[in-house]
Simulated assay, not measured.
Amino acid sequence: MTPTPANLDPACNNLALRKAARYLGATYDKALAPVGLRATQFSILQKLSTHGETTITSLADMIAMDRTTMATNLKPLAREGLITVEPSAADRRARIVTITPEGLVRMKAALPLWQAVQDRFEESFGADAAAQLRTSLKAVLDTGFEPWAE
């Protein structure tokens, strides 16, 4: 059967994923607002807190984001003094991102807010279903597409 605009919604993986991502993303954004972070910013700070300094490209890969979008997302964090972005001593073309002490404090302040949403989602959706969802979504990243390849 050839798809028509009227029958795409139930079968469109992209739309289903984006709807759920917007819904859940807005929920995390709302929860993190009291500490002045959005969910993406929290994820960036969390990755930097566990991985230490890294290049913009590596950080983008960790979060499954293209490098240009990552660089854009880093600007407000740098303006607020939560991260630094400096040229690499080893390769002047690369930029190294590091969480600052202020960034670590902000990320730690956000952690209980994040945990509360995480717990609420797992309670509502089911812990096993949430774990399976994360497994399935991780598998999406291994489907062979190269969305940011040049």
Rank of each mutant, 00 (worst) to 15 (best):
D91C: 13
A6F: 06
R92W: 09
T2I: 09
S43M: 00
K138L: 01
F42N: 01
A11S: 09
N73A: 13
T57P: 04
P76I: 06
T69F: 11
D142G: 13
S88W: 10
L45M: 02
G52Y: 03
D128K: 04
V105G: 11
A116I: 01
A127K: 14
A94Y: 07
G25K: 09
A149N: 05
R38S: 01
A89Q: 15
A11Y: 10
E102A: 15
E150M: 10
A11L: 11
L111A: 12
W148L: 07
E53L: 02
T68N: 08
A90S: 15
L113K: 05
T135N: 14
G36K: 02
E146H: 13
D61P: 09
R95W: 07
N14I: 10
I96R: 09
F42S: 00
L104R: 14
D91Q: 11
K108D: 12
D91I: 05
A78V: 06
L45A: 01
P112M: 13
A33N: 04
L32A: 02
R106I: 05
K30S: 02
T69C: 05
A64N: 13
T98M: 10
W114R: 11
A116Q: 11
V85R: 04
T68R: 12
P101K: 07
A20I: 02
L17Q: 10
V97N: 09
M70D: 02
A94P: 10
E146Q: 11
A16N: 08
K75T: 04
L59F: 05
G52L: 02
L8I: 00
G144R: 08
P10L: 02
P3M: 00
A31T: 04
G36F: 02
R134E: 04
L111W: 15
T55E: 08
P87M: 14
M1C: 00
L32C: 02
T69I: 00
L74C: 06
D9M: 01
P76W: 13
T55H: 03
H51P: 02
R95P: 12
Y23F: 12
T68C: 08
F125Q: 12
P5Y: 01
L137I: 00
A94R: 13
K19N: 15
Y23C: 09
T57Y: 03
V117M: 12
V117A: 02
S136V: 01
E146L: 11
L32H: 04
A16L: 05
T68D: 09
A64L: 05
G126M: 03
K108H: 12
K30Y: 10
Y28L: 07
N14S: 14
A33P: 02
A16V: 07
L15A: 10
S58H: 09
A6G: 00
T50G: 06
L137N: 08
F42A: 00
R120L: 10
S136M: 06
E122Y: 03
F42M: 01
E146F: 05
A33L: 05
N14C: 14
V97L: 11
A64K: 12
